[in-house]
Nucleic acid binder design. Structure first.
Length: 850
RNA sequence: GCGGGCAUGGCGGAAUGGUAGACGCAAGGGACUUAAACUCCCUCGAACUUAGUUCGUGCGGGUUCGACUCCCGCUGCCCGCACCA
């Protein structure tokens, strides 16, 4: 018998599929279509196990749907713009373009041997001028439609390198290269009006039934709809133009507990004071230190400064409140001003305690009372007793209190109930080279003018250098020069490029018509929506929310049909592939990471092979190049073949959960495939058996078809594989006739083929199957084969299993009861008495309560 | 800090509120072999008075005839936090 040799046969089948055009998608109107898409990769140059897992999941879906008769679209491309290409150019010379396209070629060479059923004719990279030119065309349409505008926004500014930093380039508040303390600086930037669609993006989540509940919940919280009161505080001694400070609160019921008014360091009033008060300017400078992330702002020490300005309490003109600047108030949310109710908000409480501001309780618990060591902030749904309420009942829920307060304030004419969202507009400007140029020009006479579509694509210039920090487009000698599309005068190009999230917000629709001279075409109507989208949970909010917005914006500008406003019908979020990290501390105090092969694992810990020093082991960490804990799938493929790698990433762990890479697992997968190969060859060699066992084998096989089909449909691939292990055991042990074994093996090959397609083809051919197994229709379950005549019923006594009986499937309840009460263990437990209760769940279980 | 998720043998995991540990890995024992590898067979949650009994699904409560599963409160870890992709 020939040994299973994946190295040869895998290549053979891949060429055969390729020649037959097996995976070319065609918009066949006679067939139902199915569009399966995995999140496209960033071309880092090396594939990793996370890729193998992601694409294997999608491949199983694509191949199964094909077998079920769908016209399948399963494309792949490259998310090719972004910072790493520029970083590489800075670190080792070269050009981001060359680096990127070379990486794409390298990764393709690594991915092709895995045998994924992609239609490579639709491949593109987002850095292809053909792709980003169409993106520029849509930008112009969206600008025209009022979906894009400019405003000031803060960025991380490195004062030494004189450049904008990404959040990940800010480490502990310092620039990653210069080490300088990062400042928050305002720049004029381009924005998508995503907040205008906040309500729709929120409400539509309810209809996304194919999405995980957790993702919908995360997006809902991110959008953050709130009902509250917007009202003004009348100021007493503020600079001109600030006679009123507008405030937004979601807890107007606590207005009588106001201890102070707080404004953001970026509030216009704070800026006005900054100009005239050096102390205030110094304080604001301190507030602006550090990065721009919400995390950095929320975890920073709470800082405040009294402005000296006083306001009148709207419910009592004699009551004056101080106005403070506080570093934890965000200008982007609400109006950038709040009133502090220190008794019922933990953050305000800490602030008031620190700066000795009043803490005035508004309500208290129905029973007992809270001490003053913390704010009392129960859920709004909880009923409380108001002691300083001004609207509604004395005892009511927070919700009712808020509603009554809004109504009362509207009555008194000093505020309005409003709905607000936490979601901010999407800033798309990047002060970087390697991105899609924003197609607008700045004209001295006409102002900001969109480029003419005839001039698209606006290409990135190739002659740039990265030896100095900053945006090479800014300092390019000629690229900026252009003529105004409106008046023809000399003008300057915009040098900001687009956020790479824009690129990934519509690539799914470009796959439907890659290469077309408009962003989308009629074929887009056939293929959209994506029926199954698969990718990492880390994209739960930003990428997926931006894509949902962009599909709406494309629809509003005529680039997608109304039915594609929600682009992804179903979403599956896979877990990460993890591996232990081995870490020591270097002489400079920084962490040093070691490759697994450089570490000795012993009973008393882990040690470096080189010098024997103790290594810290961090288990189950995300695989990341910088942590040296990446397992290269190419080694597995070379040693065991693609099917083994595919089988391994599908086995054991459920796909939504993180999976820890282990070398032993890959070996086990390889052994299993070799075993199935041997069983198939045994059958092919024709040893006959006993036809009496045929029925049992076919029954087991149909049960496997049923369970595996259901498991694949519910993304429980680990369970499908467990069933295939059982089926292999059954096939190995059965004494059935050769004809029956051949039939069962053929069906098993079909069931395995979506996961391990190469060995699937091999066995299919060996069993005399027609054509490719990849083209064979999915096996159909014979329901008659699933029927069991006798069922085993466990008997519980007080909820603990104590015995079991076998009964015919349809035995009436009364007879089961009789049998149970005559059972030895039950008689012993009853000790002559009667059961309190006898619960019979037909076909399931019996519980005797004594 | 805020939002979301996860937690079951030595390990990965299985279990419409109904026999906890399917299936696999590792380990141990045996067969085959001159020997080894491969392969095949058996055992495998813990404790005890071992044909049995008791305990056992991160911790503490609760609902139920019955809870890994539902509810409340914790702990630990993971993801995201708007310029990483």
């Amino acid at each position: 018998m020939a040994r299973y040799a994946p190295g040869e046969t895998e290549k053979k089948w891949q060429s055969a599929w390729n020649e037959a055009g097996t995976f070319l998608a065609s918009a066949d109107p006679a067939k139902e279509k199915y569009y399966v898409l995995e999140m496209f990769p960033y071309p880092s140059g090396r594939i990793h196990m996370g890729h193998v897992r992601n694409y294997t999941l999608g491949d199983v879906v694509a191949r199964t749907k094909k077998a079920r008769g769908f016209s399948v679209l399963h494309p792949i491309g490259w998310d090719a713009f972004g910072m790493p290409a520029e970083n590489a150019a800075m670190a080792s010379g070269g050009h981001p373009k060359d680096w990127t396209y070379k990486n794409i070629e390298d990764m393709k060479r690594q991915l092709k041997p895995l045998g994924f059923s992609w239609d490579w004719t639709r491949e593109f990279a987002t850095c292809d001028p053909d792709y980003y030119g169409q993106q520029q065309a849509m930008f112009i349409d969206m600008l025209d439609k009022g979906l894009i505008y400019r405003k000031n926004a803060v960025v991380n500014w490195d004062p030494v390198d004189m450049t904008v930093l990404a959040n990940e380039q800010v480490i502990d508040g310092k620039g990653w290269r210069s080490g300088a303390a990062v400042e928050r600086k305002e720049l004029t930037q381009w924005f998508f009006k995503i907040s205008e669609m906040a309500g729709d993006l929120l409400d539509s989540l309810d209809d996304l039934e194919g999405w995980p509940e957790k993702v919908r919940l995360m997006q809902a919280n991110w959008i953050g709809k709130s009902q509250g009161l917007e009202f003004g505080f009348e100021t007493l001694n503020a600079p001109k133009g600030f006679e009123r400070i507008d405030c937004y609160t979601t807890r107007p019921d606590t207005l009588m507990g106001a201890g102070f008014v707080g404004i953001s360091p970026d509030h216009p009033l704070a800026k006005a004071l900054e100009a005239q008060d050096p102390d205030m300017a110094a304080f604001l400078a301190q507030c602006r230190k550090g990065g721009t992330t919400e995390e950095a702002i929320e975890t920073a020490e709470k800082l405040g400064r009294d402005t000296g300005i006083r306001v009148k309490h709207p419910l009592n003109p004699d009551w004056e409140l101080p106005v403070w600047v506080a570093n934890f108030i965000l200008m982007d949310y609400g109006t950038g001003a709040i009133f502090g109710c220190s008794a019922h908000d933990q953050r305000d409480f800490e602030f008031a305690t620190k700066y000795d501001l009043p803490i005035i309780p508004v309500f208290e618990p129905i029973e007992g009372s809270e001490g003053l060591s913390a704010a009392y902030s129960p859920l709004k749904s909880e009923t409380v007793r108001y002691i300083r309420g001004f609207a509604g009942a004395q005892v009511q829920t927070g919700e009712d209190g808020v509603a009554a307060a809004i109504a009362a304030c509207e009555d008194k004419g000093f505020g309005t109930g409003v709905t607000k969202f936490r979601l901010r507009d999407w800033g798309l400007s990047r002060q970087r080279y390697w991105g899609c140029p924003i197609p607008v020009v700045h004209c001295a006479d006409c102002g900001v003018v969109p480029e003419s579509k005839d001039n698209l694509p606006i290409r990135l210039p190739d002659d740039v250098s990265f030896d100095v920090p900053g945006n090479p487009l800014d300092r390019h000698p000629t690229w900026r020069n252009c003529s105004c599309p409106k008046c023809g005068a000399q003008a300057l190009r915009e040098t900001d490029t687009m956020d790479t999230f824009v690129d990934s917000s519509w690539y799914y629709s470009r796959f439907t018509c890659a290469g077309a001279d408009t962003p989308t075409t009629d074929e887009t109507r056939y293929w959209m929506n994506v029926d199954q989208y698969i990718g990492g949970i880390e994209h739960a909010i930003l990428h997926l929310l931006y894509s949902r917005f962009f599909a709406r914006a494309m629809n509003d500008t005529g680039h997608l049909p109304d039915t594609a406003r929600e682009p992804f019908n179903a979403l599956f979020t896979q877990g990460m592939v993890t591996h232990a990290i081995y870490k020591t501390t270097g002489t400079d105090g920084r962490a040093v990471y070691h490759y697994p092969e450089d570490v000795d694992q012993r009973e008393d810990g882990a040690f470096l092979k080189s010098d024997g020093s103790k290594v810290d082991v961090i288990p189950s960490a995300k695989m990341s190049k910088s942590k040296n804990n990446v397992v290269d799938p190419m080694n597995i493929i070379q040693e065991f073949g693609a099917d083994t790698a595919r089988w391994f990433v599908l086995s054991d762990s459920p796909p939504e959960r993180d999976v820890e890479w282990t070398a032993a697992g890959a070996e086990a997968a390889s052994k299993f495939l070799a075993r199935v190969w041997r069983i198939a060859n045994d059958i092919a060699e024709g040893a006959d058996g006993d036809a009496k066992a045929d029925q049992d084998l076919l029954k087991a096989t149909h049960k496997a078809i049923d369970e595996i089909t259901k498991s694949i449909d519910s993304f429980a691939f680990n369970k499908a594989l467990a069933k295939l292990y059982e089926q292999a055991n059954t096939l190995q042990k059965t004494k059935a006739s050769n004809a029956a074994r051949r039939e069962a093996m053929k069906l098993t090959a079909q069931l395995m083929a979506p996961m391990v397609p190469h060995i699937g083809e091999d066995i299919w051919a060996l069993m005399g199957g027609d054509g490719f197994v990849v083209d064979a229709p999915w096996p159909v379950v014979d329901p008659a084969m699933l029927v069991e005549d006798v069922v085993t019923l466990p008997i519980q006594i007080n909820g603990k299993r104590r015995a079991e009986i076998s009964v015919p499937k349809d035995m009436p309840k009364e007879e089961i009861e009789k049998l149970v009460l005559a059972q030895d263990n039950v008689l012993r437990a009853l000790d002559g008495g009667q059961p309190k209760k006898l619960i019979v769940v037909p076909g399931r279980i019996v519980n005797v309560v004594i």
